[in-house]
Each structure stands twice: as structure tokens, then as C-alpha cells.
Amino acid sequence: MNTPPDNIIQVKDLIVKYGNHTVLNGINIDVKRGEILVILGGSGSGKSTLLRNMAGLMRPHAGHVIIDQQNFTAMSHFDRIEVRKTMGMCFQSSALFNSMTIGDNVAMPLREHTKLEESTIQIMTRIKLEQVGLGGCENHMPDELSGGMKKRAGLARAMAMDPKIIFYDEPSAGLDPIVAAEIDTLILDMQHAFGVSSIVVTHEMESVKLIADRVCMLHKGKVIALGTLDEVQETDHPFVQQFFARKPNPIDHNKENVLESLTNPE
């Protein structure tokens, strides 16, 4: 039997622009099967843009995203749907459908993509919700849940089709440390129990230490470090050092420069 290739996602020479502004400038990353890759970087470094391109929510200006040996960027609409059935995404805002119950949210991909009996879908929905610790919540509406519960419900929905890849956009942003730790544990559980490959965009260093197999650091649209957390921390790129040391950018106190920037913003 052929063993599946090592890389589940390959990003090749990805260039993304918003108007004339280049957000990602020639990104090359490979995501290994079953690993948790954390994307780090300052605000505006293009982390979320990279994640959205990997998930096919944006079309890049140039370059390719290859998922499981298939060129995701270049394929037709209906082929993309087939690939999307093998991926899930947890959004920063959870993105649960507010007009539906939590159960219907989780059941939706199953109802749309499979021909399973409704009774089977109900059972699978309950199993998925149990896995994220939300057993018995299927009849609640999203606005009846707390932020952490919504994130977990979003994860249950992302897992509904038993995906090979899950993308997480700032999974622990805005959550208290306990709930954030619960989400980290869930991400690890998904990896251990189902061999899911995860790509996580986050700012939480505690979370990175706990979950990351490898870390990718973005700065000004380029990958400046890629490797295990220790390897990345040892990189002598000034931004990497500044990032891990939590050093602020120096504020310009020169009166003339400040006056110049106020009167002539260009």
C-alpha cells in the first residue's frame, strides 16, 4: 500500500495584494500531515490573510495552495467543494448561523453533503457536541451561549465531516485563561484522536508553547522563521527577538519629526 505523501498542504510562492499593497510576498510553507502549525506575527503581518488563502476563502494574486496533492487554487468550483469537505475552519467570531440552533449548525454540513438518515445525523451531531463538551446543548440558540461555548460549538461544526485539516483563526482570542486552555486541549485532542492537521493563527504565547509542533513567523508579508518553537526562538532576526521578548517599538519623541508627521502625513 502506498503511504500518503508527507505534506498535506503546500503553499508555493503565494503573493496576495489588497489594491497596490502587497500583504503576502512569496510565501512558501509546507504543512506536514497530522502536525499543528502555528502562524505567528505582528498585527497586519498577513497571518489571517495566509490562513484565508489556505482555506480557499480568497484567491491569491499569484502562487498556489496545494492540498493533498491537488492544486486547490486552480481547480473548478465543484472540485473545490470536494476538497472543502475534507477541511473545517474555526472562525475568530465563531461564525455560527444565528438563525439556527447549535444542533442544526453542526448538522448542516452533514445534511448538505451526505445522504444520511435524519436519525443518524442527529446521533452524529450529539457525538460531535459531546466531544467538545457541549452535550445537551443542541437545542440552544447561539446567542444563549458564552464566548467559549460558541468557539467549541464552532469546532464541533468544523469537525462534523471528519476533516483532515482544521484551520483555527485566533481560537483563544477574548477568552479567559481557563476556557482558552480548554480550547488548546481540544485542538490537541483532535490531533491525537483523529490525526487532524491543524493550522492555528494565534497571539497567545502560552497556547503556542502547549500546542505547536512547528511555528511559522510572518513579518511584512514574508516568512522570517519556520521550525519548532525552540528553533524559531533561537533565530537572530531582530523582529523574532523583539516578538518573543515583548519589546515595544520605540516611540519617536523628537518634536520636529512628530510635527512633520502631523502636518504632512504622506
Partner: peptide
């Protein structure tokens, strides 16, 4: 509102048109 709450993206990622 669905667009603002990323629900449209959620639909796309699920492979729903």
C-alpha cells in the same frame, strides 16, 4: 450581517454555495 459575522465564509469553507 452574515458577511460581517463571517457566516458567509463559514458557508464557503463548508463547501456550500
Amino acid at each position: 450581517s452574515m458577511k460581517v459575522a463571517e457566516e458567509l465564509d463559514a458557508l464557503k469553507v463548508m463547501g456550500l454555495n
